[in-house]
Design a protein around this nucleic acid. Sequence first.
DNA 1: CGCATGTGTGAGAGCGCTCTCTTGACATGG
DNA 2: CCATGTCAAGAGAGCGCTCTCACACATGCG
Lengths: 350, 350
Amino acid sequence: MTVSNTQPRPRGVTLEEVARLAGVSRATVSRVVNGSPRVSGDVRRSVETAVEKLGYVPNRAARSLVTRRSGSIAVVITEPTGRLFSDPFFPRLLRGISTTVAARDVQVVLLMPETIGDSQRTADYLVAGHVDGAILVSLHGDDPLPGRIIDARIATVVVGRPLRNRGVSYVDVDNRGGARNAVEDLIAGGRRVIASIGGPADMMASQDRLHGYRDALVAAGLGADPTLEAAADFTQDGGAAAMRQLLAARPDLDAVFAASDLMAAGAMSVLDAAGRRVPEDVAIVGYDDSPVAATARPPLTSVRQPIEEMGQESARLLLELVEDADRAPRRVILTTELIRRASSAGRAMP
Amino acid sequence: MTVSNTQPRPRGVTLEEVARLAGVSRATVSRVVNGSPRVSGDVRRSVETAVEKLGYVPNRAARSLVTRRSGSIAVVITEPTGRLFSDPFFPRLLRGISTTVAARDVQVVLLMPETIGDSQRTADYLVAGHVDGAILVSLHGDDPLPGRIIDARIATVVVGRPLRNRGVSYVDVDNRGGARNAVEDLIAGGRRVIASIGGPADMMASQDRLHGYRDALVAAGLGADPTLEAAADFTQDGGAAAMRQLLAARPDLDAVFAASDLMAAGAMSVLDAAGRRVPEDVAIVGYDDSPVAATARPPLTSVRQPIEEMGQESARLLLELVEDADRAPRRVILTTELIRRASSAGRAMP
DNA sequence: CGCATGTGTGAGAGCGCTCTCTTGACATGG
DNA sequence: CCATGTCAAGAGAGCGCTCTCACACATGCG
């Protein structure tokens, strides 16, 4: 431990002092503080008065030491780039988690490993039992972290459907359904040659969105076509590059489904440069409903995800797991909403 | 505490067990683990072997109990809306903080009070000494939190210059200088009637940016003019409303300095609707260099802030304060960078 | 009235660690 | 040869809390 202690720390009010003031034993004060029913009304009141008077707050370290509970959960973010740093996904998710656990007097410990070494230390930290559970956000397929902590039987909830570790609880949005809806909307608007700009293949969200895209095409009898599918990395530049590629391969395309708003924005700039008008020549829809969607010109139709709700659900699931370690894994799938804007206006609008 | 314990927690390896395996006393193992120099080479090695073999990880709760240090710091986010949820400021700041404290084996506890009641509980939590220090982010002028925790002599660093509590350490960007640079650039591009769309008046960043704007005008001999100044709330809609107001009051304006990219985007859509071309008729610069700036059409010139660095510096300052509580408050002001894009192209470009 | 049962409270152990104090081994000097 | 100093290592207290157990007392039943 690198922290030396030059200064004596201020010492708080202890149970002992409260007990003395209330004229009872430590045990009784503990009972009152923890809401045990085995305390008579008078004694309870006098203890509460003493607690109030002294401004007593339990020492979490002492409590943890004996209960073997930390009263905290970890939120692990292992995403070096991408959507977590390009739209408000991350703060909104944290807010959802935070509101839910705060109500239960549980703290959130934030872990953001960057290097492999960090990731090792993060796993050690979790496995050492410093927290009661962990929420894992944005996992790539090759991440060894979830496997390690699930093996260690740490209560775990994953945000986003995990590629491996099927036995774990997770919260996800219906990426496939969201994508399908978006593409169906393009078809309803009269589009027939619809391309897809997908995300990294090692992310479940990318795969699901691609499947949803194909679902819609197949359901409409259009059929999937590899020359209409390009993959990028959720970034604007990646979206632009994919768009150039698609335009070269399929100059006849009349719509694009992009698996992120940023990629959609990149695609739009390429379409603009190529002299294709949006939405007249090419309709486009994005994903995430980020600020970029609303500020784009034309404003971008996009798939909105209930992000706060994901945070809340993941926290709720984790707290359940912490309460009862033998509980079977659960999955919560939240639905998306298509936000229609000018970029995907149909050809035959009424 | 609402958490009951139905399940016995797994117990970790203790110092005692390591000591037994290494054939030394608990005290010696503690010395080795904490890097005390008062241990001979052989003993140190045998202890290290035992630690390795058993996979020993210190129990933080037990350690905290005796050292009166938690080995964690709080990051308090008190911003209900605005920039924290509209651009990647927040994740990037957290990342900066996280990398710095992780290197010192200190954890980050995230606190996001939403209601007044939450804020009370947050203050109680901090004052109770559950963390060694706190980083306060995005304070409005009327927030009672910083006053309370500074009074309680909790080590505190504020991100963004605080309106009150001048005696506290803080990290800020040179908002005034950044704004001044941006406006000077507009002037250098031949603009003469330059409007400002500011942020909320109760935020220091808003005030500083407004001052920087005026500085540049005065320095160029143009002089400040209240009819060219509008205030909004950092959002796109707010920026749009402010732009309408400015256009009505000063149809002769030829440039706009917006204190956020989102407001700039709102302003651009209004200019577009009013038939003013950007940058030909009206040049515009934003602030934050968010993804919105790069995706806007035309791409938006913007002031970039070193956000990760702010996080790192604030963490560094806080750790110093934790080490030595009597250390005098320090301020760190980081410089900004103007990212030139098409939206502010000069009139007489070479 | 004696015993079983229940209920409120206290005593005390002990969670895993740090840190002071003490001991013991050895080197050095007079 | 003993006094003294130095340094490694151990003994043991105690951080603030929870929780088991024991106990005192009240109540119910045969």
